[in-house]
Every structure is written in structure tokens, then in C-alpha cells.
Computed example of a mutant assay.
Amino acid sequence: MAAVQATQDTWRVFGASVTGKAHLDNNIACQDAHAYAEVNGVLVAIVCDGAGSARLSEQGAQFVAKQSVLALAGRLEQGASVQDLHDGALAGTLAQVRAALDDIASAANATLDDYATTVVGVVMGADNGFFFHLGDGLSVAQLPDGGELISLPANGEYANETYFISGERWREQLRLLAIPHAVRGVVLMSDGCMPFAMSKNNGALYAPFMDAVQGYLRTVDSVELGNTALASTLADPRTHQITGDDKTLLLAMRP
């Protein structure tokens, strides 16, 4: 999904969502989605991973990603600060998006659970920001000193269980993680990318993969070319030997 909007070139953002082997083999569409916007130097980006067990999760992921970014960007344009979003406007925005999705479900004679999706996102200004996270997936802030701040996935009692915005207790399961410093870059990913984009136990980005990807993206002439290359990398048949899941990777870098 391309940028929802961009008002200033403080960030260079690349993203791709590709269908995993399990879905390719069964002719099922990609249930991942991503979206991003930039408003006066503040980045808003989201990755959503639709539940495999939910029959309309592809639509849920696309709706939640796009509409959440549009709504958050709108609040920033109206004068909200990064801190305002952290202190309540983010949760309020997600509640509005969830209510709108519930209306869509009712009109389609479906349930909100039919559109179940996780959410992992970031709001990042020049000097501070925060991750917001509901369910699995993972996000990383790359700090100027070479360190990394990681928002890890949250699962339920069982390994294959996670949390969705459609859940009744979604507010309790929504996590915010402050990013108190400027960053070199931000990486968001669905859980399908974690086996090859993260090191063991999700302790850090897996440098042999991520350094090569980010190094190349810094050299491309256009975001479109970079997005195409990123999608090709994620769709490489060699990744099918690692995971059969859909894969989304979004990288935002300071120029």
C-alpha cells in the first residue's frame, strides 16, 4: 500500500506485503496490509496481520491500516502533538476505526471477529515518539548509538494465539512503548518476517539480512523501485523454506 499522504520529506519509507506459500498453495489472498503517512515531519506507520481463521481478515487488515493512518494523520494536521496521541488520542482513534469496522460488518451480515487483525504501529517525531501494539508482529527503533528499542509480540496462553482489534478486551491488550530519543530508522514487520529479519529470541534485527536490505534501499532512485525490490526479496522462494506465512516489512529511514 502506498503512502496515504506525505507532507514533508523528513522520512524515506519503503513497504511491501506479500503472500506466503501457504496462501499461494491454497489460492488465498494476502491477509497482511500496511500504510503510512508523514505530517510535518511526524511519521505514522502501521502493519496489520489479518487472522488466518477469520474469513474477511484481508479486508479487516486493509481497512484498519489505511483508516487508522488517515485518522491519526488528520489529528496531527489539526494540531495534535505526538504526546497528545500517546496520552489518549491514539486509543480513541483506534476505537473509532474499530466502531467503523463493526458498522461494515453489520452491513455485510458478518461479525467483527470476521475482520480480525493485529496492529503494530509507530508515531515518530524528530526527537521522540512511541510504538503501539496489539497482538503479534514486531517493531524496532534504530537508535543513533547503534542500539535498538524493540516492541515484542504478545501472544495468549498458547503459542498460536494472539490478540486482535476485534476482541472485546482490545483496550486492555493495547500496549504503548515510548521512544524517548531521536532515531535513525524504524522497522515494522508482521510475524511472517520475524524468522529471517530478527536474530535469535527476537533480541535484535538480524544484521546479515537487514543491513543488506537497508543498504540497498538507501541507494535506490525512487520509493517505487525500492518497494518493488523489497517485495521481490520477501517473495523469494527461499523464504518459503523458512515460513509459509504472509510477510510484511515496512522500513522508515532518515534521508
Score class of each variant (00 low, 15 high):
Pro180Asn: 14
Lys66Leu: 14
Val64Ala: 03
Pro180Arg: 11
Val47Cys: 11
Leu234Pro: 01
Gly41Asn: 14
Ser106Asp: 15
Ser222Gln: 14
Leu251Pro: 01
Pro195Lys: 08
Cys30Ala: 04
Phe131Trp: 14
Ala182Gly: 08
Ser57Asp: 09
Tyr36Glu: 10
Ile179Trp: 12
Phe209Leu: 12
Val82His: 07
Gly50Val: 05
Glu157Pro: 03
Asp102His: 12
Thr93Gly: 01
Asp114Arg: 03
Ala16Ser: 09
Pro255Tyr: 08
Ser53Thr: 07
Val13Phe: 07
Val44Pro: 14
Ala6Tyr: 02
Phe131Val: 05
Gln142Met: 15
His23Asn: 14
Gly50Lys: 01
Val120Gly: 03
Cys193Leu: 07
Gln96Phe: 11
Gln67His: 15
Val44Gln: 10
Phe63Ser: 06
Leu70Gln: 14
Ala29Trp: 10
Gly125Trp: 11
Val47Ser: 03
Asp32Leu: 11
Thr93Arg: 04
Asn26Cys: 09
Val140Gly: 03
Ala154Asn: 13
Phe132Ala: 05
Val186Phe: 06
Ala33Val: 07
Ala116Lys: 02
Val47Asn: 06
Met189His: 06
Ala22Asn: 12
Glu58Leu: 10
Phe14Ser: 06
Phe130Ser: 05
Tyr36Lys: 00
Arg171Lys: 13
Leu230His: 04
Asp114Glu: 05
Cys193Arg: 01
Lys247Gln: 12
Met1Tyr: 14
Arg12Gly: 03
Ala105Glu: 10
Leu249Trp: 04
Ala212Ser: 02
Tyr115Ser: 05
Met194Arg: 12
Val223Pro: 07
Val69Glu: 13
Phe130Asn: 02
Thr219Ile: 00
Ser232Val: 06
Phe164Pro: 01
Asp25Glu: 15
Ala107Pro: 02
Glu224Val: 15
Met124Phe: 13
Ile242Leu: 07
Phe63Trp: 10
Ala229Pro: 00
Gly74Pro: 02
Ala100Tyr: 13
Val120Lys: 00
Ala89Phe: 13
Leu90Ala: 08
Met194Thr: 15
Arg98Leu: 13
Leu205Ser: 02
Ala207Pro: 04
Val120Arg: 01
Arg75Ile: 00
Gly50Glu: 06
Ser81Ala: 08
Asp84Tyr: 04
Ala107Tyr: 12
Ala80His: 06
Val140His: 11
Thr7Pro: 02
Gly52Tyr: 12
Trp11Pro: 06
Asp103Arg: 13
Ala35Lys: 01
Trp11Gly: 05
Leu94Ala: 09
Ala65Lys: 02
Ala3Gln: 13
Gly156Val: 15
Leu149Trp: 12
